[in-house]
Computed example of a mutant assay.
Amino acid sequence: MKTQIQKAFSYQQLVDMMYIANDGTISKRRVKILSIRGDSFQAYCFLRHKKRTFKIDNVLSLMPVIVKERQII
Results as ranks from 00 to 15, higher is better:
Cys45Gln: 07
Arg37Ile: 15
Gln13His: 08
Phe41Tyr: 10
Lys55Ser: 10
Phe54Asn: 06
Asn58Trp: 14
Asp23Trp: 06
Glu69Asn: 12
Leu62Val: 03
Gln13Val: 01
Gly24Trp: 00
Gln12Gly: 10
Pro64Met: 08
His49Val: 03
Thr25Val: 10
Thr3Val: 11
Asp57Pro: 02
Lys7Trp: 07
Ile66Ala: 07
Ser10Trp: 01
Gln42Glu: 15
Cys45Gly: 09
Thr53Glu: 08
Ile26Ser: 03
Phe54Ala: 04
Lys55Cys: 05
Thr25His: 15
Arg37Glu: 15
Thr53Arg: 09
Lys2Phe: 10
Asp23His: 13
Leu14Asn: 12
Leu47His: 00
Phe54Gln: 07
Ile36Trp: 10
Tyr11Cys: 13
Lys7Tyr: 08
Ile56Ser: 09
Arg30Cys: 11
Gln71Met: 13
Leu62Ser: 02
Thr3Asp: 14
Arg52Gly: 02
Val65Trp: 00
Arg37Phe: 13
Val31His: 01
Leu60Thr: 09
Ile36Tyr: 04
Val65Phe: 01
Glu69Lys: 14
Asp16Val: 11
Met17Leu: 09
Arg48Asp: 00
Ile56Thr: 15
Lys2Asn: 15
Ile56Trp: 05
Ala8Glu: 02
Lys28Gly: 01
Val65Lys: 04
Ala8Cys: 02
Ser40Gln: 14
Gln42Thr: 15
Asp23Gly: 11
Ser27Met: 04
Gln42Gly: 09
Ile56Asn: 06
Val15Pro: 01
Pro64Ala: 07
Met17Gln: 04
Gln6His: 12
Val59Arg: 03
Met18Gly: 03
Asn22Met: 12
Arg70Asn: 13
Leu14Gly: 06
Arg30Ala: 03
Leu62Glu: 06
Gln71Glu: 10
Ser40Lys: 14
Asn22Phe: 08
Gln71Ser: 05
Val65Gly: 00
Lys51Pro: 02
Met17His: 05
Asp39Ala: 14
Lys50Met: 06
Arg70Ile: 11
Ser35Cys: 07
Leu34Trp: 03
Met17Ala: 05
Gln42Asp: 12
Cys45Pro: 08
Arg70Trp: 08
Ser61Met: 06
Arg29Leu: 00
Lys68Cys: 10
Ile33Lys: 11
Arg52Cys: 07
Ala43His: 05
Gln12Glu: 15
Gly24Arg: 01
Glu69Pro: 11
Arg30His: 09
Gln71Lys: 09
Met63Glu: 15
Met18Phe: 03
Asp23Tyr: 06
Tyr19Pro: 02
Asp39Asn: 14
Ala21Leu: 04
Met63Gly: 09
Tyr19Asn: 00
His49Trp: 02
Phe9Gly: 05
Thr25Leu: 12
Tyr11Gly: 12
Gln6Asp: 13
Asp39Ile: 12
Lys55Tyr: 08
Lys2Leu: 15
Asn58Val: 13
Ser27Trp: 01
Arg48Tyr: 00
Leu14Asp: 10
Val15Asn: 03
Lys32Gly: 01
Ser10Gly: 01
Ser40Asn: 13
Met1Glu: 12
Tyr19Arg: 03
Gln4Leu: 15
Arg48Ala: 05
Phe46Asn: 04
Ala43Met: 02
Val15Arg: 06
Tyr19Ile: 09
Ser10Met: 04
Tyr11Gln: 14
Gly24Thr: 00
Ser27Asn: 06
Thr53Tyr: 10
Ile56Ala: 12
